[in-house]
C-alpha cells in the first residue's frame, strides 16, 4: 500500500502483532504499520467497522492501537523505537483491570 523512498533506510525493528517489522528511524508507529502493508488499525468501538489513519497528525484518533501493552495509543503520534511492540485490537475495547 505504501513504499519507501530509497533514501530512507530501515534500521529499527519493532514488533507488530507478534511479527518483527523493520522500519526507519523517525517513523511514527502509524507510518511503520502503513509501510508494512497494514491498512486496518482497529475496529470502531460503536459500529465495528474497519478503521485506519485519516490525518497522520494526531487529530482524528482513528489510528489507536496498543503500544507496549498500553491500549488506545495514537500510532501516528508515537515514534518508533527498537523493540517497541504494537498490538492491534479488533474488539474495539480494552480490559479495564
Amino acid at each position: 500500500m505504501f513504499r519507501r523512498l530509497p533514501e530512507r533506510k530501515a534500521s529499527v525493528t519493532i514488533e507488530i502483532d507478534g511479527e518483527p517489522v523493520s522500519t526507519a528511524p523517525g517513523d511514527s508507529v502509524a507510518a511503520a504499520m502503513l509501510a508494512a502493508g497494514i491498512a486496518v488499525f482497529r475496529h470502531a468501538p460503536v459500529d465495528g467497522g474497519l478503521r485506519g489513519p485519516w490525518c497522520a497528525m494526531g487529530v482524528c484518533f482513528e489510528c489507536l492501537v496498543e503500544i507496549d501493552g498500553e491500549p488506545n495509543r495514537q500510532a501516528c503520534m508515537t515514534p518508533v523505537r527498537e523493540g517497541l511492540r504494537v498490538a492491534r485490537r479488533t474488539d474495539g475495547s480494552e480490559p479495564g483491570r
Partner: peptide
C-alpha cells in the same frame, strides 16, 4: 472512514516524515 481513504495532507505528512 474506511481504510484506504485519507486526507491528502496526511499522504503528504507521510511523505515528509517517512518518505512513504
Amino acid at each position: 472512514e474506511r481504510p484506504g481513504v485519507m486526507g491528502a495532507g496526511a499522504a503528504q505528512v507521510l511523505l515528509k516524515a517517512s518518505g512513504l
